[in-house]
Design a protein around this nucleic acid. Structure first.
Length: 227
DNA sequence: TACATGATGCCCT
DNA sequence: GGGCATCATGTAG
C-alpha cells in the first residue's frame, strides 16, 4: 500500500512480513515469576508475548506494565481475599489472570509469587512485532499510516483484543509452558532505560510508583509528562 | 435477587 | 479533554 515506514518502525513492514524478526527465544521458567511483582514488572519489559494459533504467530515486545501486590495493595484484585474470579492470583506463578472490565475489555495479568501469596503484573502495552495484519484484523483497524500501528496494542484492552485474549480462552493458562498457545519468552530486546510512574486508571493507592515503562518507546499507552 | 462499580477505549467536542 | 457504553463480579439485602 506504499506506506512510508519511519524510523520508529524499522523492521516492521505494514504488510506483516518480518524484516527484523525477533528470535522467539528461551522459555521463561516459572521461577522468573516467583518473585515480588515489582521485580518481575521491571524485568519483564522487553520480553515477548507470543500467541500461536492455527497458522499464525503473533508476538510483541512488552513495553509497559503495572505491578499489583497482595492484601496491602488496595488497588489489587487480590486485596479483598481469594474469590472464584481472582483465584489465579493465589495460584502458581506464571499463569494468565484475565478479567473483563467496563463491559467491553479484557486485561491480561501474569500471576507472581506462589503458595497462596497473591500478586501479579498487568501487561499494559506491547510493541507489535509479528502478525501485524492479524492483529489489525482482530482490532477492526485498517492500517493506513505508520501511526495506526500504535492503535493495535497500546493499552491493556487493545492488546487483549489484538491477541484474541479472553477469560474463557486464556484465564489460568500457563505462560511458561512450551505446550501453551500463549506464552512469554525471552526476546532479543534490552530496554535502554526504564521509567517508573504512578499506575493509571485507579483510585485506590494511586500514588504508588508501580507502573513501569520503556523510555522513549512510542508504543506505550500514555506518554509521561516530563521524561 | 438487585444494584453499584470499575486496572478502558472510542467518539465527540 | 470529557462523557459514556456495557456487563461480570462482589456484596448487600
Amino acid at each position: 500500500m506504499g506506506v512510508a515506514v519511519d524510523s520508529t518502525l524499522q523492521g516492521i513492514d505494514l504488510k506483516g512480513t518480518k524484516v527484523r524478526a525477533p528470535k522467539i527465544g528461551l522459555q521463561l521458567p516459572p521461577e522468573f515469576f516467583d518473585r515480588d511483582p515489582q521485580v518481575v514488572a521491571r524485568e519483564i519489559l522487553g520480553k515477548l508475548l507470543v500467541r500461536r494459533q492455527a497458522e499464525e504467530l503473533l508476538s510483541g515486545h512488552i513495553v509497559e506494565v503495572e505491578a499489583y501486590l497482595g492484601e496491602d495493595d488496595p488497588a489489587a484484585h487480590a486485596a479483598a481475599g481469594r474469590t472464584l474470579r481472582n483465584s489465579v492470583l493465589f495460584g502458581p506463578p506464571g499463569r494468565a489472570y484475565v478479567y473483563f472490565i467496563y463491559g467491553h475489555h479484557y486485561c491480561l495479568n501474569v500471576s507472581c509469587l506462589s503458595d497462596g501469596v497473591p500478586g501479579c503484573v498487568l501487561v499494559r502495552a506491547l510493541e507489535p512485532m509479528i502478525g501485524i495484519d492479524e492483529m489489525a484484523r482482530s482490532r477492526g483497524i485498517t492500517l493506513q499510516s505508520p501511526a495506526d500501528l500504535k492503535k493495535l496494542t497500546s493499552g491493556p484492552g487493545r492488546l487483549a483484543e489484538a491477541f484474541g485474549i479472553t477469560r474463557a480462552r486464556d484465564n489460568g493458562k500457563d505462560l511458561t509452558s512450551r505446550a501453551s498457545d500463549l506464552r512469554i519468552v525471552e526476546g532479543d530486546y534490552r530496554p535502554a532505560r526504564v521509567i517508573t510512574t504512578e499506575r493509571i486508571g485507579i483510585t485506590k493507592a494511586a500514588e504508588r510508583p508501580l507502573r513501569f515503562l520503556v523510555a522513549e518507546n512510542g508504543f506505550v499507552s500514555r506518554a509521561t509528562r516530563s521524561n
